[in-house]
Amino acid sequence: MAGHAPSNHCWQYYVLVPGKECPLPMGDLLSRVLGSYDLVISGIRQENLKAKKGVWFIDTDQGLLVLKKMPVDSVERLRFLLAAVRHLQERGIKIPPLVPTRSGEAYVMADGFYFIVSQAVRGFPPHYERERELAAMVKALAAFHKASIGFVAPPGSKERSHLGKWPESYAGQAVALAEMAGSARLGDFWQKAGPYLRIFRDRCLQLREELLQSGYWSWVEKVRQGGGLCHQDFAAGNLVIDACGEINVLDIDSLTMDIPARDLRKVMNKVMKKRGSFDADLGARMLDWYCQVNPLSRDELNVVRIDLEFPHIFCGLVGKYHQGRGEDWSEGKFLRKLEEIIAYESSKHAGLRKALGR
């Protein structure tokens, strides 16, 4: 729930002067929030600020800290996240510790927003092309999932869960692709995407049937009864290798209850997509690294295979284009991404079966 320490030349620095308004967007609000902490603050760097979330690096007498505006809609949701973080920390997962307020609270609520302060982590993100760092990252993911077993959302919290929702999600993606395929659309993007809308719609439906016949429901029930969390964005940008060579996990904003396959699919897709196609040998090694720490049964590995083969990335891109959500993307960039993703999605079937020895 923190960021790694920034390099000074990358950030505009603001000196906080007592009695004067902070010269940043939301400056007055930030001053009030930070006033709830027993800190001597000398300066602040804004990393990012969006409608629902924001991150600031704070120079204090206790060292470099991170102030975060949490993207939650209720205190009950925040309690779920904070309880999950405590559970993971108590079981050895390195997540930056929170700094309590003067009154001992874990957060501050101001103007309808929720804020937390945590220690910053100095280090560097793992690199997907360095196998040693990639292996450490995959093993850290497995340790994260293993440590999450036994977590139960406490009373007074609002649980986030994706358990049991995959078949409905798969069906929804198939319907969306069918609707786009059935509408006449002009332009190079739709001319290129058109045939694949039907191809991948059919794949969505086929994989939904495979999911329904797989060990998916048993795995869901196992997590429902025994507890289990997914990070949802266990990527290099949210991880820091510290001076001891250990991986620290950042940005737990999206924690959800679900089976581990959700995170495994996202991590493997990120790594493989950068290579342009699904590398069967690397895929086999990544699954082996994971299973060294958190073993998966043959049925569970089959569920991982199904979710990896599902065209999540293609669905995401055409949905983004259709809904006009890429305001900062040119038409050419959309077309290049589409060509890359079609090539990657088309490589997964054979690569996954080879990786799993099928």
Rank of each mutant, 00 (worst) to 15 (best):
V117K: 03
D38I: 04
P125W: 04
K139V: 02
Y321P: 01
R358Q: 14
M268H: 04
I58T: 07
Q225W: 04
Q46H: 04
L186F: 05
Y107N: 05
H4V: 03
R358A: 10
H322D: 15
G54Q: 08
E339W: 08
N302R: 14
D279M: 09
S118C: 05
G283E: 06
R275W: 02
R45W: 06
D307N: 11
L229Y: 07
K146R: 15
I58N: 04
L207N: 12
H127P: 00
H145D: 11
Y216A: 07
V75C: 07
C22G: 06
G276E: 08
L356T: 03
F144A: 06
A147S: 12
R130T: 01
P96A: 04
R265K: 15
P311Q: 08
L335S: 03
Q173D: 14
A2H: 09
P195W: 09
I149T: 12
A236I: 02
L264N: 01
M26D: 15
A135D: 07
I116K: 00
S7M: 07
D59R: 00
I342Y: 10
K68I: 13
D328P: 01
P167F: 04
M180P: 03
V152C: 10
P155D: 15
E210Y: 14
V318L: 12
K320N: 12
P25M: 00
G172V: 04
W217P: 00
I241K: 01
I259H: 06
A2W: 05
D328F: 11
A355L: 10
H312K: 09
E209S: 14
K192C: 03
A261H: 08
E246P: 01
A120G: 13
A110H: 11
L352H: 11
V303G: 09
V15F: 08
G245W: 00
G215M: 09
M257L: 14
Q46V: 03
Y170R: 02
S118G: 13
V175G: 01
G43P: 10
K192N: 01
P125S: 13
M1R: 07
Q225P: 00
S347Y: 01
D61S: 15
E339A: 12
